[in-house]
């Protein structure tokens, strides 16, 4: 009797575990199926065409791709140095009594939903950008800044974890030789934890590129490529968030599905690179 139950239990768990793989595969298949119409209609020009005009059934994703790339690039440029600073502060500078509370608060801030960062950005940051740089304040620049603030806690926490993998004995040896903290950081910690640190940044990049709510509030969803960062813009997730519920034609839907598929493939690739190439053995994130 119990050997039957045993088999049932074992197979149920196996089935469900395997189901997770099937589910992920199914997501790709469904998104692809729904993209077919758009892929047939536009082919490769979908990602090179800069005109997105639902009223004439013309869909070019270039402005959204451009917006995703630029806003994420801005966010990374702003967040990486600060994240390194925070990580150094937490692993080398802060007094033991300060380490835990500051570290935990940063981890808790990483848990705050991105919609709240977006809302804060809309009410408090948009006016600042408007008054400082001109324009209407809803812009690529604002999106980049809010995005950087949103990924900062996550990035700082993983970077710190990566730095903390450096064995104390290596650091102590360097200090014993008379190294300053900076010497230890640049000659011991960074070389030792390099892969982990780079992996953390790429992982944060993978998250930032798919981030929707933090930027939807402040980007404006304007399908126009503008070099001026204070102009409103759009990105792939922003387009999806704004237009999915109101798309009114089959081709429009299909184009949005193609955008989703494109986004999934891109972030899947970036996250895989981070996980498999850089974070493989350390399993820190």
């Amino acid at each position: 009797m119990s050997s039957i139950v045993d088999k049932i239990f074992a197979n149920t768990t196996k089935l469900i575990a395997f189901g997770v793989l099937l589910l992920v595969a199914w997501i790709f298949v469904v998104l692809f199926e729904h993209s077919v119409e758009s892929i047939k209609a536009f082919g490769f020009t979908f990602i090179t065409e800069d005109k997105w005009a639902p009223n004439v059934e013309k869909f070019g994703a270039l402005p959204a791709i451009y917006g995703s790339v630029v806003s994420t690039f801005l966010a990374m440029m702003l967040a990486v140095p600060v994240a390194i600073g925070i990580a150094i502060f937490l692993s080398e500078i802060a007094h033991a009594k300060l380490k835990a509370p500051v570290g935990i608060s940063i981890e808790l801030l990483a848990a705050i939903p991105s919609v709240i960062y977006g809302m804060w950005g809309l009410f408090y940051f948009v006016p600042i950008i408007r008054d400082t740089f001109g324009g209407i304040g809803i812009s690529m620049l604002t999106a980049g800044i809010i995005l950087s603030i949103m990924i900062l806690p996550f990035m700082a926490a993983v970077t710190r974890d990566a730095m903390n993998t450096t064995p104390d004995i290596l650091k102590e040896s360097a200090y014993a030789l008379g190294g300053t903290k900076w010497d230890v950081i640049k000659d011991i910690i960074i070389p030792y934890a390099k892969a982990g640190i780079i992996g953390s940044f790429i992982l944060a990049l993978g998250r930032a590129i798919g981030e929707t709510m933090a930027v939807t509030f402040v980007m404006g969803n304007v399908h126009k490529i503008s070099v001026d960062l204070t102009e409103p813009a759009t990105s792939i997730p922003v387009t999806l968030a704004n237009e999915f519920a109101e798309a009114d034609s089959a081709l429009y839907y299909s184009s949005l599905f193609e955008l989703s598929l494109f986004l999934l493939v891109i972030s899947f690739t970036i996250i895989s690179v981070a996980k498999f190439y850089f974070l493989r053995r350390k399993r820190i994130a």
Binding site: A17, V20, L21, V30, L31, P237, L240, L263, I271, K275
Partner: peptide, 27 residues
């Protein structure tokens, strides 16, 4: 099989959630 499931789950934890919305919209 287990290692693959672990890896895929790790990736899905960081994948854009809006895409899941699009998937559920479709199905």
């Amino acid at each position: 099989l287990s290692e693959t499931i672990r890896d895929i789950s790790d990736i899905m934890m960081s994948a854009p959630s809006i895409v899941i919305g699009a998937f559920v919209y479709a199905i």
